[in-house]
Structure formats: C-alpha cells, structure tokens
Design a protein around this nucleic acid. Structure first.
Lengths: 210, 210
DNA sequence: TTATAAGCGTAACAACTGTTACAAAGGGTG
DNA sequence: CACCCTTTGTAACAGTTGTTACGCTTATAA
C-alpha cells in the first residue's frame, strides 16, 4: 500500500502523513458495479482513490436516477467529507464504474489530521472545490444542453474514465443515468451514428469523435 | 459592528475570534440589485451575511442565466471560500436580492484562522456542506421537476427570503432566472392563478399557498 | 392629452421529449 | 435446432416547452 500511496499522493502529502495513512488506512479492491455508498448511509470512513473510477448518482423520491459525475484517481469523495465531518447521511449513491482500488481512512483520523497537517487541510479544501466545480458542470449539462448533447457528453466522459473508446453499456442503462427513456436514447444514438460520431453494436458503443 | 457580530455569529465563534473579525472586517451596506460578484472575478475578500439575502446565478457561454439558490443571514458564500483558498476565478454571479448588510473579511485572515480557530474551521467546512446541499437541491429541481413546479418553488423561495408574500418581479425577470421564455412563464403563472395558488398583479405576484 | 415604452395575455405553431406498442435481431440453453 | 430472454429499431402519438406574432393595458413623459 505504501508504494501506491507514495506514487499517487506523494506529491500532495508530507512523508509523515503518508506514513500515518499507511498505518491506519485499509486497502480495498472493489469490483465494477459494486455499490460503495447508498443514499441515507452514515459514512464512517473516507475513501482515497488509487485507481479506477466511481460514478456518483442522485435520486429523487420516485426512485428516478441521474448521474452527477465520475470520480477518478487522486480524487476523494467530497460528499463523504461532508458527511463525516457533519455526521449526516449521504445524499448521493456511489457505484464503482470500473474495478477500483482505494484506501479507506477512519473518520476520527481524518478530523485529527485537519488540525495537524496543513497539506491534509489543503487537500480537503481542494476536494471540496473540485466537487463543487463538478456539481456546477453537472448543472450546466442538465440546464443548458439538449438531450442529444448530454448523451454525447456522457458517452465521451464514460469512454474517458474507462480509458476505452468502446463502452459496454445498454441503451436502457444510459437512459437510467440520464433520467430519460430507452426509446429516446435509442433514437438519439441512431442519429449520432448517422452523423458518424459513434458506432452502434449490441451491448457496446464505440465513440469515434473523442 | 461588534453587536451585529455577537448577535448573528456569537453562538458559532469564540469571543477572541469575534474580536478579530471586528478588527479586520469591513462592514458594508449593499442595496438591492447590486452585483457583488461577477463570473470570472478574482475574490480577495469573503462576505459574512448579517442581514438580507443574495441570489446566486450560473451562466452559460451564450449568456443564458439560471438561478442556483439564495443565501441568507448567517451564511457565507462557499464559492467565495473556494476561490479565495484556491486563488481561482469565480464560477458564479452573486446579486443582492434585498438590501443587505455584510462583513467582508480579507482572504489572508481567513486562511490564518483556519489553523488558529477550531470554530472557524468548523464554520468553513459546514459552509461547504451547506452549499453542496443547496447545489444538489438545485440539481433536483432542474432535473426532476417540470417547469410549473419549478416556477412555484421559485416563487415560494423568493417570498421566503424577502419575508414577504408579495413578490415584486416581472414575468421577464422570472423567465431569465429559470432559463426559459417570458411567454412560458406568463402561461404557467396564469394556470397557478386559476388554481388559486397565487394572485397576479402588474409588477408583483402574491403567493397564497405558502 | 397624446405618444411611447414596458408589461402582460393569448393564439398558433414548432421543436423536443416521453409513452406505448410491436417487430426483429442476437445470444444463450436444453 | 427450438425456445426464451434481452437488446435494439421504429412508428405513431401525446405532452411539455419554446417561438413568433399581435393586441391590450398601464405607467410615464412630452
């Protein structure tokens, strides 16, 4: 774990803090599709992403979903920060988008380090800033883009975090992430294919115009 | 200023910090409609709201606006926090919704206090948490509600922060805040009136179903 | 008073998105 | 191969939102 830590977080944290993380953190291997956080969960530890990607979702009272953004290597989940520090429930759902490696840090340590390590404080504040920006971008996407633009952005983002231009996903799954219906997605995907931006195959989509 | 501070922030901050704020803070009276922050601005001081309300807006590259939320007494602007601590540009616009009183704190002090006062650190983190929740609520509103529901929520929120069931606003202004057209708003307002939820008058709207 | 501009109401239509229904294709299993 | 289930394609229609156009009212100034 120490090597992973130094590699991905060494430039952020002083050696002493890296050592502390190494001592109290728990290394975890998460398979694709695993649900890390459910809405309403109380969070007792905070994840540092080492590799892979996590999908963050919002849900309304009717159970309708909506993707907010992806989290990648070097990030942490600011929602988790929020929840830990405020001892409140999670307002989002987190699902492993790919196989993921992460380090879990107990909430008690996390608070202790805030006073102890300037670099940790900076990291936490920077994480909040990043997540805030992601949320604003999500708002832009929903508010200002039409469904065909949202769809194409979604495909590109998904190809990006998977490091693969071929996306393994069904139309129905996309529809759920974008909070619309399968028929609408099929229709728009077909148009994108005609425009030469993607190639459609069963259970996967190749994004050409990256 | 000291009295105002003790009244609105005394329960949050220790006396010593209140004194410091009193020493370095600048008291400001802001008239309704005044633009406090423009998108792209670099922020060099951070506001603590004493009274009044501030409207936070997002804008896309075409100049289309969208209201995110209102900030009220006892709050601060987490976007400002973000910008100050990261020395980055503002991603939002802030406009005084009502006549507003606030205390401006220089960014240097703000950072200094983070290490010095536990209560300040708590306040900053709590502010981030609150703003994150507001952004999520904004996303819910845009993504899951139809325009008539969004409109009614907007009217109620506006009545709330103005402490007045009568809202002084034109249909055109509402349309701009909700990123739609005047005709759409007029149409939906008329329906709300027929349903007995509001009363329409020239330049103002009375919200009945609060 | 008349002129002018801002605000509002309404109709007609267009564009986009959502729903229902059904058919066809692909993949796996016995 | 026959069978079944998932996935995708497509048509037809409905609902919501956006656009254009025009007329009326109200406030304000000349």
């Amino acid at each position: 774990m120490l090597e992973q830590l130094k590699q991905h977080y060494g430039y952020l944290f002083e050696d002493e803090l890296i050592q502390e993380i190494n001592n109290v953190g728990t290394y975890k291997d998460i398979p694709e599709g695993f649900k890390l956080i459910e809405i309403g969960d109380y969070i007792k530890s905070m994840p540092l992403l080492v590799s892979g990607a996590i999908k963050i979702l919002r849900e309304d009272e009717d159970g309708d979903e909506l993707i907010l953004y992806f989290i990648e290597q070097g990030d942490t989940c600011a929602m988790t920060l929020s929840c830990c520090l405020g001892s409140s429930k999670s307002e989002i759902r987190a699902i492993a988008e790919t196989d993921t490696k992460l380090i879990m840090i107990p909430v008690a340590k996390m608070e202790e380090w805030l006073g102890k390590y300037k670099s940790w404080q900076q990291f936490v504040l920077q994480s909040y800033h990043n997540r805030m920006s992601e949320l604003l971008e999500a708002i832009d996407t929903i508010a200002f883009l039409k469904m065909d633009e949202r769809l194409f952005k979604y495909l590109k983002d998904k190809a990006m975090v998977n490091h693969n231009e071929v996306i393994h996903v069904t139309h129905q799954q996309i529809a759920r992430d974008l909070h619309t219906s399968r028929v609408v997605i099929s229709r728009l995907l077909k148009t994108l294919e005609i425009d030469g931006k993607i190639e459609l195959h069963r259970n996967n989509i190749k994004v050409l115009d990256l």
